[in-house]
Computed example of a mutant assay.
Amino acid sequence: MKKIESDKSTELVEYYEAKLKKLFSIRKQLKDYLKQENTKIQEVVVCDDMFVEYPYYIRTKKGGKYWKAALKFHIKPEEL
Rank of each mutant, 00 (worst) to 15 (best):
Y56N: 05
A18W: 09
V13I: 15
K21W: 01
V44G: 02
I75W: 00
M1Y: 05
V13M: 10
E37M: 04
K61R: 14
Q42V: 04
N38T: 01
A18G: 05
C47R: 11
E78W: 06
E53C: 07
A70V: 01
K65V: 03
E17T: 04
S25V: 00
E5D: 04
K31M: 13
I4F: 06
I41R: 07
E17W: 01
N38P: 01
V52L: 08
E79T: 13
W67E: 04
W67S: 04
P55K: 03
R27L: 10
K8L: 14
Y66V: 04
Y16F: 15
K21P: 00
E53M: 10
M1Q: 09
L30H: 02
I4N: 01
K61D: 08
L80H: 07
K21S: 08
K8H: 12
R59M: 07
V13F: 11
K3S: 12
Y16Q: 02
L71N: 14
K19Y: 06
T10M: 05
A70L: 00
P55N: 00
L20V: 04
L80V: 15
K22I: 07
E14D: 15
K19W: 09
K40I: 05
Y56H: 11
S6E: 14
I26M: 05
K72D: 09
E37N: 08
V44H: 07
G64V: 13
P77C: 00
W67D: 01
Y33Q: 06
M50L: 12
E37Y: 08
T39Q: 03
K62F: 09
S9R: 13
K72H: 03
E53K: 13
K28D: 04
K68M: 12
Y56F: 14
Y57E: 05
I41V: 15
I26C: 06
V44W: 04
H74E: 08
A69I: 07
S25T: 06
E17I: 02
Y54E: 12
Y66T: 03
K31E: 11
E5H: 10
Y56T: 02
R59T: 05
E43S: 12
E37Q: 12
A69C: 06
G64A: 14
D49H: 13
D32A: 14
D49V: 04
E37L: 04
V45Q: 03
K22L: 09
K72E: 06
T10G: 03
K61I: 15
K8Q: 06
D7Q: 13
E79F: 12
D49I: 13
F24T: 10
K68F: 11
M50S: 14
T60L: 01
Q42Y: 08
D7V: 02
D32P: 03
I75Y: 00
E5W: 06
K76M: 11
Y15G: 02
Y66A: 07
T60E: 03
R59W: 10
K72C: 00
F51N: 15
R59Y: 09
M50G: 05
D32N: 14
V45M: 09
E11V: 12
